[in-house]
């Protein structure tokens, strides 16, 4: 079902945590709300769930205006970071809870719970209590409880962040598969850009309560809408060089190069992803500097260089050998450079 936030704002006293957020989630879409802590992403999710009141604006699920509807009547299911399993109920009772409070017939409950349990491979654990389960199993119970009543949307609040790294990767894949199978609209909150990029159909990036960009993972990576998104997505982050643009040529203390832009006479910031740069002998390439540090990661080496006043990191071969302090040049395809207006941070072109 479609979920629409229409100019939705939230303030706690005088603190505005969400400013006129508008976005539309299409039926069956997997949308990730990505942001650092304090960006307002969790608040947005809780407003959709009805756990947080709306200061202004409205929220629609399907064609219903649910802005003032009680959480229990919104027909959405939520998976919490802590899983929020009821410790005094067995796995079966936990999964069955959404059905029992709705007073469904016993036989139907029994069948639905067993079906869902099988789907998430919990059928042998139904009589256990949450405290007797591992982290991954608890996570599955939380998912099963969300699935069991076929809600019109899933809301997930950092559901994987309490798992260890290995299990997280595994559950990520399962989650994506399951959402695809069920085809239920999902809104997923996380601060982890890898989760966002791998899971989402579209990613919405929030910062200080303002939507920065809403687009597919590929577009977000390839065409960041502003400096914040550029710096937030990608690891290691995009290199930034401050300089000026004159007749389409970028000029800074470390060097100058042509760009696709025809703008002129303004202060800009040029961005270059580490994998787009390559190291060259001194004097070659568009930028000149010296090696500050080099770190072998495994399949590649990260080389950090001082170029004028800026630091530029470049992804090099794993057998790169250079010593600290050695002068070096950095080259790149000129169309790989991202240009941003220095004052507003917005993307140019």
């Amino acid at each position: 079902m479609t979920i629409i936030l229409d100019q939705t704002s939230k303030s706690f006293g005088s603190v505005e945590v969400l400013r006129a957020l508008s976005l539309e989630v299409k039926p069956g879409e997997f949308l990730v709300l990505l942001g650092a802590s304090g960006s307002g992403k969790t608040t947005a999710l809780r407003m959709i769930a009805g756990l947080e009141s709306v200061t202004s604006g409205r929220i629609l699920i399907g064609s219903r205006d649910v802005t003032h509807v009680l959480p229990k009547n919104r027909d959405v299911a939520m998976v919490f970071q802590s899983y929020a399993l009821y410790p005094h109920k067995t796995v079966f009772e936990n999964i069955a809870y959404p059905l029992t409070v709705r007073k469904r017939p016993k036989a139907e409950i029994e069948k639905s719970v067993r079906d869902v349990a099988q789907q998430v491979q919990l059928d042998h654990l139904l009589e256990r209590y949450p405290r007797q389960l591992s982290g991954g199993q608890r996570q599955r119970v939380a998912l099963a409880r969300a699935i069991v009543r076929r809600p019109s949307a899933f809301l997930m609040d950092e559901p994987l962040s309490n798992l260890d790294a290995k299990l997280r990767g595994h559950m990520r894949a399962e989650l994506k598969h399951m959402q695809h199978e069920l085809g239920i609209t999902t809104i997923y909150v996380t601060h982890d850009q890898i989760e966002a990029m791998t899971l989402a159909h579209r990613v919405a990036i929030l910062e200080r309560g303002v939507l920065q960009q809403l687009d597919t993972p590929a577009n977000i990576y390839n065409r960041p809408a502003n400096l914040f998104v550029a710096g937030f997505i990608g690891s290691p982050p995009m290199n930034v060089l401050e300089g000026s643009l004159a007749d389409g040529r970028f000029d800074c203390s470390a060097g100058s190069f042509g760009t696709a832009s025809r703008a002129s006479g303004r202060a800009v910031v040029a961005g270059l992803r580490p994998e787009d740069g390559r190291l060259a002998p001194p004097g070659q390439g568009q930028l000149a500097g010296e090696i500050y540090a080099s770190e072998l990661i495994g399949d590649h080496t990260l080389v950090t260089c001082r170029c004028g006043g800026a630091t530029v990191t470049v992804k090099a071969d794993k057998d790169f050998a250079g010593s600290i302090g050695q002068p070096i040049g950095i080259g790149f395809e000129e169309r790989a450079v991202h240009l941003f207006d220095k004052a507003s941070g917005e993307r140019l072109q």
Partner: peptide, 26 residues
């Protein structure tokens, strides 16, 4: 800034709350 406008969407009229829901709020 990418902003989707949702102003064009008209919602169904809000349903009346039942007594149960009123009790729940209070």
């Amino acid at each position: 800034m990418a902003v989707t406008s949702a102003a064009h969407v008209t919602a169904a009229p809000p349903e009346r709350e039942s007594l149960n829901d009123w009790l729940d709020r209070q």
